[in-house]
Structures are given as C-alpha cells and as structure tokens.
Amino acid sequence: MARSHLTLAALATSAVAELDVVGAAPFGSAGRGDFDSAVVTGRDGRLWIVRVPRSERAEQEQSADLVALRALSQGARARLPFEVTVFAGQAPIDGTRAIVSEFVHGTSVTLTAIDLELATSIGEAIAAVHALPTSLVTDVGLPATGTDEAHRAAQSLIERAAATNLVPAALLDRWRQAGDDAGLWQFTPAVINGSLGADSFLASAGQVTGLLGWHGLRVGDPARDLHWVLGIRRDGIADAVFDAYTRVRGSVDRRIRQRATLLAEFEVARWLLHGTDTRSTEIVDDAVRMMSRLVDDVLGDATDSIAPPTLPILAVDEVEALLDRAERVS
C-alpha cells in the first residue's frame, strides 16, 4: 500500500534535524512507480523531496544514487550548467529507509516535449558531465570501463543475440561489421551518468535545470549517455543534441554518433535476450518485430551508418579544379 504524503512528511522531520515542515504534497503517481514520494516545504520556504523505495531493485538504485551524489563534490557541481540535488538525511521505515534531499525545480522532460532549444541545452548538459575529471569517480571506487572492455562486451552481446537464430541476416552483418571495426571503439573513457533518458532531465523555459538519477555514475563510453537521443525521429532534434555536445567537447570522439547508433540498436538485442532468458514468447515476438522494423529503417537511411566515414566523392570538374589549385601552389 502506498504511503501517504503526510507519513512521508513525518519521516522527513525524523531524517533532517531542525526541519520544520509546514506543507506537504504527493509527488508522482501515488502507489505507482518504484518510489513513494512527497515534496515537503520547510518554514524557511525551502523545498525537499522524500522518497521511500517500493522494491528491492529500487532500494539498490537509491543506495547507488547516494554514493554517486556524495562523489559529486562542490567543485564538480560548479562545473555543471544545472542543479544536482543535495542529500539531507535518512530515516528507517519498514526494513528500508526514507531518503530526504533538496528539491530541484523544473518540469520532467518527455521525448515529445524536446524542441530544438531544449535539445541544444541537453547536448550541453551531457557534454558538461563528460568533461568532469574521471578521478572523482575512480577515487570513490565506482566502476570504470575501458575501450577494450566495451568492445568485448559489444562483441559478446552480438554473438549471444546471433545464437538465438532470430536476428535478421542484414542486421547481424551490420552489427558484426561494427564489432570488427577497431576504429569505432577508439574513444577516451569519460565520466558518464550511465542511465540517461528523456525523463532524467528537468527543464524550464527551454533550458535544463536539473538531472535526476545518478545511480549509474561511472567512467565509460560517452556514447552510452547519448544513444537514447536517436529515438527522437523529429527533424533536427538529434542533430541539435549532437551539435551542441560537439561544440562543448570538441572533436575528442569523432565516431561517437556512430557508436551511439549501434548502442541504440543493441537495446533491441537486449530485449530479445531478455525474452529468451525468461522464456517469454510475447517479448521474443515483440523483439523480432522491432528488429524487422529496424532493418527497414537502417538500410534505408544513410544517416544511420555505423561504417567508417569516407571522403566525399568529387565530380570531374571538382577534381580538375583541385589539381589546378595544387599545381599553382607547387
């Protein structure tokens, strides 16, 4: 049974010394989702959010979130163009715990709500996270994955999916070519959030104001934080995110979009493997349909290429002009 906002407000007063609650309201859908949540107002006008996990998985996620938030020092937070919540206190309840943290203002972002302005802000926000020093993650013992590990993990996933004999040949060839392309995996590991999606962001007036869910914080492949963007099919949105990201980060990873494309396609492979592991015919059939649509999409869209970039093909008159300029220079 869902805990009421009044119960959560009482827990907040137990968790945070000297917190004088003068108001409380439910946050999110009561009785749904992974957490019971409420926003409480202190006498000083400050807002706090109290959350109690509803499952073991949510409890593990919350614990990882706390470790990550503690790793984000004041110096690191100052480098980010958005707010990161601050842990305030905790109180035990029914074998788990209520966590109280500072409330970050903004409206939860959905895929359909992302316009060009917000897409630009999202790209800048992700780039700022990736520019943080890796030592803030490694010094507290959070996971760090290198290029070789990422490459091997991708190849392993491809072969596991292939073993189901359900992946279309054209898609399997595409994935294997990417797995064999050593250049695709030559990237510099960076600090990544590790679990980004549209609903990770809070925004106001077209700008990112906050970023939720830090439980996946680690050093790893930057493309992992960007692959979800490619699910936005409206013209220019994904381009705006990647363009803004590149402006902030520079050309440190020339093939990040190609790798992000591959990681986005791997989500279908993971769904297929989840279906086979759980012996769910419904999930397997859904994954097969998704792969069929994916084949139609990627084979008909050159912008989704994950092959090595090639130089543009010049027309005859362009070749002649190029040779003429070279001769004059010499």
Rank of each mutant, 00 (worst) to 15 (best):
A2M: 07
T7W: 00
A9F: 04
A9T: 07
A9L: 06
L11I: 05
S14A: 13
A15N: 00
G23A: 13
A24F: 04
A25E: 13
A25L: 06
A25P: 00
S29T: 14
D36Q: 03
D36R: 01
A38V: 11
V40F: 09
T41H: 06
T41P: 06
G42Y: 10
G42S: 15
R43N: 02
R43V: 11
L47G: 00
W48I: 01
V50H: 08
V50E: 07
R51E: 15
R54M: 09
A58N: 08
A58R: 03
E61C: 02
V67G: 03
R70N: 13
A71H: 04
A76G: 07
L80R: 12
P81W: 10
T85Y: 10
F87Y: 15
A88D: 10
A88I: 06
Q90Y: 00
D94Y: 05
D94I: 12
G95C: 09
G95F: 08
R97K: 06
I99F: 13
V100C: 08
V100T: 09
S101K: 12
G106T: 11
G106N: 06
V109S: 12
T110D: 05
L111K: 14
E117S: 07
L118A: 03
S121Q: 03
I122N: 03
I122E: 02
I122T: 01
G123V: 06
E124R: 13
E124Q: 13
I126S: 12
A128V: 00
H130A: 11
L132T: 03
P133V: 09
T138L: 06
D139I: 08
D139V: 04
V140L: 00
V140Q: 10
G141I: 09
L142D: 05
P143D: 13
T145K: 07
G146K: 08
D148S: 15
A150W: 06
A153W: 15
A153S: 14
L157N: 01
I158P: 00
I158K: 07
A161R: 01
A163H: 09
T164G: 04
T164C: 01
V167K: 02
P168I: 02
A170P: 11
A178D: 07
A182P: 04
L184E: 06
Q186N: 14
T188I: 13
T188W: 00
P189L: 06
P189T: 10
V191N: 08
S195H: 14
G197F: 03
A198I: 01
S200R: 03
F201M: 09
F201I: 07
L202P: 08
L202M: 12
T209A: 02
G213S: 11
G213T: 09
H215C: 13
V219T: 11
D221P: 05
D221Y: 00
R224H: 14
R224I: 02
L230Y: 01
G231K: 07
I232K: 01
I232F: 00
I232M: 10
R234H: 04
I237A: 05
A240V: 06
V241G: 11
R247K: 14
V248G: 04
R254P: 13
R259C: 10
L263V: 01
F266D: 08
H274T: 13
G275T: 11
T276L: 04
D277G: 02
E282G: 00
I283Q: 10
M291P: 12
R293F: 07
L294Y: 12
V295A: 12
D297V: 10
V298F: 13
G300F: 09
D301V: 03
D304Y: 08
I313R: 15
D317A: 08
E320A: 15
A321L: 15
D324G: 10
E327Q: 13
S330T: 12
